[in-house]
Design a protein around this nucleic acid. Structure first.
Lengths: 348, 348
DNA sequence: ACGCCGTTCCAAAGCGCTTTGACAAATGCA
DNA sequence: TGCATTTGTCAAAGCGCTTTGGAACGGCGT
């Protein structure tokens, strides 16, 4: 069943049927209804290839998927993709994926662009001075980055959360509660968000004349096991930290396991604030000691990015080029006043 | 630059140029050369949308990417995708990805199929009685599954390795070396390959009148951390196993850490055989005690699957519908004779 | 000379959609 | 009533490729 057949069936021209389906105003509501009804009955689906040829739009977004062994292709990425996909399905867009070795991301991105299969590109996991940025700018194809690239000229379209502000605020709260010994459970150290979160923490500390020791930082993939082992290291330090900042609730999950195993009380002997990406299976309010968090929904970011990208391709409505989402600091029970110095013992 | 312009430039018809480019025999080698040269100079690239419309082929393979929180979307998946991608690039094919909640995989697969964006479907991570199978069969679109579905009628096209045989052979070797107490570090229990590997081991054991105790099996995602913790559990058992079968070298990495920490000697007090997917960054021969493995390259499987799928779409050459690859059993230093019973102590 | 092939090329007809430009019919306004 | 709009519809011209059904040409045998 194609458009021609459908229009003959309805006794209308292809023009009218096409317009009825694509929401053009110059068609009578009654006939539009009639068309829609016929579509339902016949199961007509417009041929994508023909649409593409006629419009010049593929209806797709390209993304390269790094297949690095140590790559952070975990639950966070999945959650983000879900948001992206949700919105894409709504607009009948799809994704073209290009698997690539991490040392050929730039090449893969270029091949994807010139393949003619995509209308726009999406990139994530930005690093400092990211080499993909200059390439993308030279490409005359719309693109959008999730996150930012520390050290690069900020003249590219992005959506990011205020990582620096989030961890600055979180650190300030802990400082106000009297904490002075901090530790940071961070994501992979080369990634932009990790750099900024560290900086946010460092900024808050330096305002009080404090600094973060190298051995009080852990940069790892964000799994609970790695959170646990890093936290175990922290807890064995002679002058162990009382205030922990954590780049993900997943890391926190492991960290808290370590805290419990050490026989310490969360929110009393140890305070912890985690960044909450609003993962549906890991709600900070459901932790046995509810978690104080900085919150920003990863899925919402996915939805928004798809919106902007698709909007750009369809050219409907102007979108801001750069968005920086504030995070919310939500205080729950995992933070409390710093323990008095001489209380600093307990079952190690 | 389009075909028309190019052909005018060359003083040839569109037909001839098109045929020259697509390798048809009825064009003079000299003119073909001339065409190819012109393409190089002008940078002409055929319009994909037009090709799709004319041929009816999209040049793409669809796959749904589960975004489950506990999903096994790890280094193994990346390695496989790399193989798939390698071959796809060679044929100028691409992948369309559809992110989906794990509870809507079937729906996502269907939407992908009727979207008109793909020529064929690929599915993996098969489970027992996988519900995707009947759907795929009803779909009149070529598909190929990586792995098999235990309990389903085996009347679908697949590529799998002989998981049962691999672990049967591995277990036999260990039995011949005198081992009687076995443990299994397996992948997620609902996945087909894990089921079959367990069965292979069980079959070998039952031939000797042995059975595998429930607490000597671990079913987890395949990360080194989880391998380590599972192994630690095994080592603490009163009658601890001396023969370990491991579904991945990644699991083995963690397991061996546990063995070392317990002060045990791999290949002497503990023998271990792992399945080796030939991950480029984790070579069994480079372990401090080189690993005995069952080997089958995941990347090669990806390449082969892409080959078959693309071949089916292009209709060149018949491909076997079902392939079962044998694995190789490669003996290295991590296996040795079972320790004498009374030697069974050591630093726990 | 003729007919017959094989080779090499071409004109034109699709593929199924969108969109332009034009045209009747219906409506508004005077 | 007449005229200018607006509304609803259509025929036809693309979009850029592949592929069908010849046609021109030269060589070959008879």
């Amino acid at each position: 069943m194609n458009l021609k057949q459908l229009s003959e069936l309805l006794g209308l021209s292809q023009t009218t049927v096409s317009r009825a389906l694509n929401g053009y105003p110059e068609v009578n509501e009654a006939t539009r209804e009639r068309v829609l009804q016929a579509v339902k009955e016949t199961g007509y689906r417009p041929n994508k290839a023909a649409q593409r040829l006629a419009t010049g739009k593929a209806g797709s977004i390209g993304l390269v998927m790094p297949t690095a062994p140590d790559h952070y292709s975990d639950v966070h990425f999945g959650e983000f993709l879900t948001g992206l996909g949700e919105e894409a399905v709504r607009h009948d867009f799809h994704f073209v994926i290009m698997p690539a070795d991490p040392d050929d991301e730039v090449g893969a991105l270029r091949r994807l662009a010139i393949s003619g299969n995509v209308d726009a590109l999406f990139v994530a996991y930005m690093r400092g001075h990211d080499p993909r940025l200059p390439m993308l700018k030279s490409l005359s194809m719309p693109f959008l980055v999730h996150g930012r690239s520390f050290g690069s000229e900020p003249d590219y379209p992005y959506l990011d959360i205020d990582n620096e502000g989030a961890f600055y605020d979180a650190a300030r709260l802990l400082l106000q509660l009297g904490h002075t010994r901090f530790a940071l459970l961070n994501g992979p150290g080369h990634l932009d968000f990790a750099i900024r979160r560290k900086n946010g923490l460092a900024a808050a500390l330096s305002e009080r004349g404090l600094a973060l020791a190298e051995d009080c930082m852990s940069h790892t993939s964000m799994t609970d096991e790695l959170g646990q082992s890093a936290m175990e290291r922290f807890l064995q330090m002679p002058d162990r930290p009382t205030a922990i900042l954590c780049s993900s609730t997943v890391l926190a999950l492991g960290a808290i396991r370590a805290v419990n195993q050490a026989g310490l009380k969360l929110g009393e002997e140890i305070s912890l604030i985690a960044h909450d990406d609003v993962l549906p299976h890991l709600k900070p309010e459901n932790f046995s000691v509810p978690l104080t968090t900085t919150r920003s929904s990863l899925r919402a970011a996915g939805v928004r990015i798809a919106q902007r990208l698709i909007g750009t391709v369809k050219q409907d409505g102007p979108f801001p080029d750069q968005e920086l989402w504030k995070t919310e600091l939500i205080v729950r029970a995992s933070t409390g006043p710093a323990p008095r110095q001489d209380q600093n013992f307990g079952g190690v």
